[in-house]
Computed example of a mutant assay.
Amino acid sequence: MDTGPDALRRWLDTHAGGGVGELSVEPIAGGRSNPTYRLTDGRRRWVLRRPPFGHILPSAHDMGREHRVLTALAATGVPVPRTVGLCRDESVIGAPFYVMDMIDGVALRTRQDTARLTAGQRAGLADGMVGTLARLHEVDPAAVGLAGWGRPAGYLERQLRRWSAQWEASVTRPRPQVAELLRRLGATAPGCRHPGIVHGDFKIDNLLVDRDDPTRILGVLDWELSTLGDTLTDLGILCSFWDQEGEFHNPITAGATALPGFPTRQEVVQAYAAARDVEIEGLDWYVVFADFKIAVILEGIHARHLPGHTDDARFEGLDATVDVLLDRALERASCSVVAGLRG
């Protein structure tokens, strides 16, 4: 935190119903993007999220967007933490932030975490993930006050422009894969057939599950990229992070779902299509785009890490990880059933 907890305690006291005692503040490990902290006064517990330190990509890390969507989804059946308040006054901790209630759940971040589950629990967790994503995508944005929160029409074209600009804003060295991917994706971008609320980073380690029943999802976290758009981009992200045995694993999830009990990627897609009663066409485009977007995000983190704005050991080696993701995106594009993606 940039300042002591006194100013934060005073702010929290006015937003959490009063009676907030002396605060203890400690960072929560796990996130690679927005720093997250655990707050407690010995009786109650909260979570604080703020933008990253140092180099920040334009339009990224908007605390207000995260706070707004969490607040809007509170009564929808999509499991999200209850928001406490949003603070744009940077004098409190040195940056904008928001606070939410802490969920007493477990994050399954690694293969070691999911290896502790039984095969039946893994299957149940996968069912819960697919059901949760489908439930989110079926929420009527207007009914929860998010009608003007984004523009589904032209969403994918704008996404390509945005992530191309994000790449240029954070690139640490030239990579020819980027121009080729953007050329192919731009030439084949589909229309927005399934508009709705997009999470933007839906994967297993952005969930909190029940400690006693890991098939029960208590909270979906990390909504910084959420908007209104093409909901199939979330399915593409989920597929990018859905590791299978015998295949290259996404460097972030590193094999977390490549264990008995977890369904195949194709089975996940089929279950999602059945849950929403929709036809899934051209998903290759969304998976290739997901690999590219993840590479851009990691390049942004790498750009912050180089001058010492982050000192987390997990950020070492991100330079090579970016190349691996870009190469996989090109390989997937070259094998796609979408003709224009093949080159």
Rank of each mutant, 00 (worst) to 15 (best):
V198T: 04
A303W: 01
L208G: 09
N206Y: 06
I301Q: 00
V220P: 02
G196P: 11
K293H: 02
L208N: 09
L225W: 01
R265E: 15
I252S: 15
A258I: 08
L298A: 09
G261H: 06
L221T: 04
D243N: 00
T231P: 06
F202K: 03
T233V: 15
H194M: 10
R193F: 10
D222F: 05
F241Q: 12
Q270T: 12
G196C: 11
Q266H: 13
F248K: 05
K293M: 10
N250Y: 09
G246C: 09
L238I: 11
A256L: 08
I237K: 09
L298C: 00
I204V: 14
I252W: 14
V278A: 13
K203I: 09
D234P: 09
G219F: 06
G255P: 09
G200S: 07
L259D: 05
V220C: 12
Q270H: 13
H302I: 11
A290S: 12
L259I: 02
D201S: 00
L238W: 04
E224L: 03
I197H: 04
R276G: 05
D210F: 04
I197E: 06
T233W: 07
P263S: 09
G246W: 07
Q244M: 15
H199A: 11
Y286Q: 12
W223M: 01
G300R: 08
Q266I: 02
H309E: 14
G308R: 13
D230W: 02
L235V: 12
D212C: 03
I237W: 12
D210K: 08
G196A: 05
R211S: 07
H194L: 15
T253Y: 01
L238D: 08
R304H: 10
A274Y: 02
E247I: 00
R211Y: 01
I204Y: 01
K203P: 01
L283Y: 09
D222T: 02
P195R: 11
A290Q: 07
G219L: 00
E245W: 08
K203W: 14
R304V: 01
D212T: 01
H305M: 12
G229V: 05
D234K: 13
R304F: 03
L259Q: 15
G219K: 06
Q270K: 12
T264I: 08
D205I: 03
Q244L: 14
C239Y: 02
R276L: 01
G282D: 15
N206Q: 08
S226A: 15
P307G: 10
R216T: 05
H302M: 07
G300P: 04
G200P: 01
P307I: 11
L207N: 03
S240Y: 14
T231A: 05
P307T: 04
H305D: 11
F289R: 05
R211N: 02
V278P: 12
T231K: 07
G236S: 00
S240M: 14
A290L: 01
R216E: 00
E299K: 03
I252Y: 15
A254R: 15
E279F: 08
E281P: 04
L225G: 00
I252N: 13
G236N: 07
D212M: 05
D212S: 04
R265Y: 02
W242H: 04
D284H: 04
V198M: 02
K203C: 10
H199E: 04
L218R: 10
Q266Y: 11
A273E: 09
A256C: 06
L225C: 10
D311G: 11
I252L: 15
D234T: 09
D205F: 07
A274E: 13
D230M: 00
D213Q: 08
L221N: 05
P195N: 05
